[in-house]
Simulated scan of single mutants.
Amino acid sequence: MYWEPGTYYNLGDVVEFEGHRYKIIQPHTAQSDWSPPVTPALWGRLSDEDHTGEHRHHGHHEEKQQLVYEMPRPEGQTVEIHREEREKHWFDLDDHRKKELEVGGGLLAGAALLAGGYAAFKSHQHHEEAQKAHTWALGNWLHDAEARTAEYRNYGPRSPATWILNRGKEIPPEAILVGKEHSWSLFICRAFYEGGVQIGKASSAFQKGAVIGYKHEEIQLDTYEILIGDMNGLRWVDASGRLNVEALGYRPVEGGRESDGTPLYIAEAPHKGAVHPGKASEKLDGAYIPYGGKETCISMYRILCFA
């Protein structure tokens, strides 16, 4: 069905406009100056080749098909892990289930990353059960990141900003550019570390591709999520000191979290002649950016929000 002004579009609707297909992000009644290409906050463009899993809009009639995403199990995993179980902390599982997950492969995804050199935690600072808890959480973060990436690759963006999994120093062309430091570009990334998901920066110039900051240290990582999107649907909002989310006046883009669940928000802050991606929260004194092997706190910064 072609996009038409004056038509109400609901979640799941897919339309065609100027030879391309778009899927609704926010339900609305179309206006003549709200065509899909100029309203990325309302419409996400779909692949021109893949026509599966669509909800096409047919006026009063809709043809609907539920979208299902199934991630392949890590090699050797024989135990089925349900989504609600992945949202639980390792210590909230009973002993019998923990043993099943250990024997049946529930820890394999995280263990595979650790074997590849992923720095998820400092092993000498945690006893064996705590290391299992971090490995379990690492595997669940990787699983969710892979699912988000598969959804984006198959069906296009559902929002002006999307986190997708990335490895190494090659930066996707859709990644949101924050600024340049010397001759290299800086992009927004996040990754699992010490039980939380920390926000940092990615660049083809970095040793492994990404760096995050944690407890005044800079950690190099080659497996991370990178933020891609369209700045036509986003904006940077001024902030300072401890972040007051309600005072922003706009909804911030999903960022990360501390190990205790405290939300972390995507910040950009000036330092040493460049603008760097980093993190801010209601508990931090300013925006923290990884720089020069440690973290630096900047009192005046901006938060990435939906426009």
Rank of each mutant, 00 (worst) to 15 (best):
L107F: 05
L107W: 02
L107Y: 01
L108E: 11
L108T: 09
A109N: 01
L114W: 07
L114E: 10
L114R: 15
G116M: 09
G117H: 09
G117E: 07
A119V: 15
A120R: 12
F121K: 02
Q125A: 12
E129Q: 10
E129T: 11
K132G: 01
A133V: 07
A133G: 13
T135M: 04
T135E: 03
W136L: 01
W136F: 14
A137P: 07
L138G: 01
N140Y: 05
A147N: 12
A147K: 15
R148C: 11
T149K: 10
T149I: 09
A150M: 15
A150V: 14
E151N: 15
Y152G: 01
R153Q: 14
N154C: 13
Y155H: 15
G156V: 10
G156E: 07
S159H: 11
P160W: 12
A161R: 03
W163F: 10
I164F: 03
N166F: 05
R167C: 11
I171P: 08
I171M: 14
P173R: 10
E174D: 10
G179N: 03
K180L: 06
E181N: 14
H182N: 11
L186V: 03
I188P: 01
I188Y: 04
A191T: 10
Y193L: 06
G196T: 01
V197G: 00
I199K: 06
I199S: 00
K201N: 05
K201Y: 05
A202F: 08
S204P: 06
S204M: 07
A205G: 05
K208L: 13
G209N: 08
H216V: 04
E218W: 03
E218S: 06
Q220G: 00
Q220Y: 12
L221P: 04
D222C: 00
D222P: 02
T223V: 14
L227K: 03
I228E: 02
G229M: 02
M231D: 04
M231S: 07
M231P: 02
M231G: 02
